[in-house]
């Protein structure tokens, strides 16, 4: 078993899997580990997976690619929802127009509230 350098906290609450990324960067150096760690952590996840990016202060195009790959991997049975994008992360999604592809909530709380409605 590989020891992933990417730290994630994964828990399920009311039928929603919450993946909290406990790293400040998802970049070219960590994108592969990130993808693999999320993949393993969401193997038994329910239909809604919320990824909390509050602690991530930087992503590059490799990090963005890893999040896109995660969404594709989870589909079609499970949906990836993003929450807590910091301004630098939000900027990468906006410039590449990936913000139009993902469901994005300002905070984790808002994302969870939306799932309950």
């Amino acid at each position: 078993m590989r020891d992933f350098s990417m730290e994630l906290q994964i828990k399920s609450e009311a039928g929603v899997c919450i993946v909290s990324v406990c790293e400040t960067r998802i970049d070219a150096a960590s994108a592969l580990d990130f993808k693999e760690a999320v993949r393993q952590g969401t193997q038994d996840a329910p239909a809604e997976v919320v990824m909390d990016l509050t602690q991530v202060s930087f992503i590059d195009s490799s990090g963005l690619g890893a999040i896109v790959a995660t969404m594709k991997h989870l589909a079609p049975d499970r949906r990836l929802i993003l929450a807590g994008l910091t301004p630098p992360v939000e900027k990468v999604f906006r410039l590449t127009r990936m913000d139009s592809v993902f469901r994005i909530h300002l905070t984790l709380e808002e994302a969870l509230r939306a799932q309950c409605e």
Partner: peptide
């Protein structure tokens, strides 16, 4: 080119190739 992911099926979304676009855009 400028990315236009809205027009693309989920399965075909690019997972890379944004690097040069971002450099030139910023």
């Amino acid at each position: 080119g400028k990315p236009d992911p809205c027009e693309i099926d989920l399965a075909d979304l690019p997972e890379g190739g944004f690097g040069w676009f971002l450099i030139q855009d910023l």
